[in-house]
Design a protein around this nucleic acid. Structure first.
Ligand SMILES: [Mn+2]
Ligand SMILES: [Mn+2]
Ligand SMILES: [Zn+2]
Ligand SMILES: [Zn+2]
Lengths: 146, 146
DNA sequence: GTCTTTGCGCAACCGAATTGCATCTGCCGC
DNA sequence: GCGGCAGATGCAATTCGGTTGCGCAAAGAC
């Protein structure tokens, strides 16, 4: 299901380029993890990432966690909180991508970015409250599970 | 900090009334948990609820979980997903309360309902996607942590 | 008061994520 | 190319929020 395994392999070079461009230390786990994210059209859990790496470049689960965090810190990926209390990760494609909504299928768990749905720019808060981040999440059934 | 302990005690009668009105079996843990929620002006984690019950009516943690779920099922409370992967719970005050946004302080963790901020009623989804629930969460600093 | 149904407490369990620490390795300076 | 060192990895153990199974207790119907 999904695209051929080769797609992920072709993303390794792209991943290496991005890591180098960020002026960061290039390692096999980092390139491999980022390549997995780049090859996916849905946001992935750490578990799904580790699974994808089983064949080819096995990476310790802890390292997967650390690399994902590191990617988020560098803004090479973003982290999406899930109703099931697991983070999901997606590579940031274009550098000019703003905060957007997310959709999670309550049946299959697939999470996709709704890139064209911006989060409400202004929310009325109580006096003295200062906003930092706004999260807009839609739960429902995806086209496949419909 | 917060209001006097007595406030929680005064809510026990109110809690009993609500449970009876729902036609459900009345037990000490149920009334105690709901009373804690009613006495709080912020949404509480299961841990905070259990903590509140330590003195007075100690309730097993599993029972707290089950009662909270049960309250949500009866629509006597609602559950708020948190960035820190813990649910928070708040009693439903007025019967006519719709879906609303929530605010979580990234410093002290306090979560409040933004009752007057409605979630976006319509979100543009990909073809074949069917929405079920929309969650709007703001993270930032509350007045106390500002 | 008895009976049945349902909730409670306890202990064990689970999965996601984190931490501590020893070892390894990019990559900078030479 | 060749150290050397800061920083990344792997492994084991741990934390933490939440769940499950089951025997016992008690609510409330009669
Ligand atoms: Mn996204
Ligand atoms: Mn609320
Ligand atoms: Zn689906
Ligand atoms: Zn605060």
């Amino acid at each position: 299901m999904g695209r051929p395994r080769s797609h992920q392999a072709t993303q390794v070079a792209a991943a290496q380029g991005r890591i180098r461009a960020a002026g960061e230390r290039l390692t096999a786990p980092r390139a491999a993890v980022l390549a997995v994210l780049l090859a996916s059209d849905t946001a992935l859990t750490h578990h799904e990432v580790a699974q994808s790496l089983r064949t080819g470049t096995p990476v310790d689960r802890v390292t997967v966690y650390r690399v994902l965090d590191w990617l988020v810190g560098l803004a090479l990926a973003h982290r999406i909180p899930g109703e099931d209390r697991t983070w999901r990760f997606r590579a940031n494609r274009d550098s000019a991508h703003g905060p957007h909504a997310h959709f999670t299928c309550s049946s299959c768990g697939r999470t996709v970015c709704l890139e064209d749905v911006a989060v409400p720019p202004r929310v009325r808060l109580p006096r003295g409250f200062r906003p930092q981040k706004v999260e807009l999440t839609v739960q429902g059934l995806c086209a496949a599970c419909h």
